[in-house]
Each structure stands twice: as C-alpha cells, then as structure tokens.
Simulated scan of single mutants.
Amino acid sequence: MSTFFERAAEYASDQDRKWFEQHPDADRYFRPTVIGEFGPGRYPKGGRTKVAQLGPGLRARTGSAFLELEFSAQLVELPPAWAAGLDLTAPEEVPHE
C-alpha cells in the first residue's frame, strides 16, 4: 500500500499530465498545491505549484512555500486525519490558470 505522500504526488502528477495533454502548446502552468505532494513539510494556505513541461512526459514541480509567512503554513508530518481513506486517484476538477 502506498503512503499518503506517494498517493498525493501520484495524484498531482496525473493531474499535471492530463493538463498538458489538453494544452499541448503550453510549457508551464500554475495550480493549487496538493497537500502532501512534496512529502512531509509545511504547506502554505493558498499555496501554488509551478509545473514546467521539460520534455515529453517529463515535468518539474516547484512549490511556492517560500513566498508564504511561516504562521500561515500547515505542518504535515503524517497524513492529515481528514485524508484517512481518501482516494486521491479519483478524478477531480483541478482549477488551472
């Protein structure tokens, strides 16, 4: 069984792949950060992730945590209680710019 953080990263990566399939001429976009996608750490409220398409099937994700003040960040060391049993692979509409 995969961990919460692995599932979060897989979910984010899958959503990014779908976005680039729908926008083949794009080389980057910004989206809301998926809590847990970067592993344990601080996740700012309203955090954004920059996703760059480096080549076919190769993407780089950069979180915007460094832009936020520490008191507004959520520390995630273990899966949040609300994520217990959450299926992160379920299709969900993700807003994109």
Rank of each mutant, 00 (worst) to 15 (best):
T89C: 02
G46I: 10
A81W: 04
F66T: 06
A81K: 13
P91S: 08
L88A: 02
T49I: 10
F71D: 10
E92C: 06
G57F: 10
G55L: 00
Q74S: 08
G57P: 10
G57M: 11
Q74R: 14
L58R: 15
V51A: 02
R59Y: 15
A60Q: 11
A84T: 15
T62G: 03
L78R: 15
E70W: 08
G47T: 04
S72C: 05
V94F: 00
P91N: 08
E97S: 08
W82N: 09
A81G: 07
L78Q: 15
A84W: 11
G57W: 07
L75E: 14
P40Q: 13
L69C: 10
P95F: 04
E70A: 12
L88V: 05
R61V: 02
P44I: 07
V51F: 02
T49Y: 03
Y43W: 09
S72T: 14
D87K: 08
K50V: 09
S72N: 09
E97Q: 07
S64N: 08
G39A: 09
Y43D: 01
L58I: 14
G63I: 07
Y43F: 11
A84S: 14
E92T: 15
Y43H: 01
A83F: 12
P79D: 02
H96D: 02
V76L: 05
E37Y: 03
E97K: 05
D87L: 04
L69H: 12
P40A: 15
R42M: 05
E37T: 03
P91M: 06
G41Y: 06
S72H: 05
E77G: 12
G57S: 13
G41W: 06
E77W: 08
E37N: 03
G41S: 09
R61P: 00
V76F: 04
A81P: 04
K50P: 00
P40S: 14
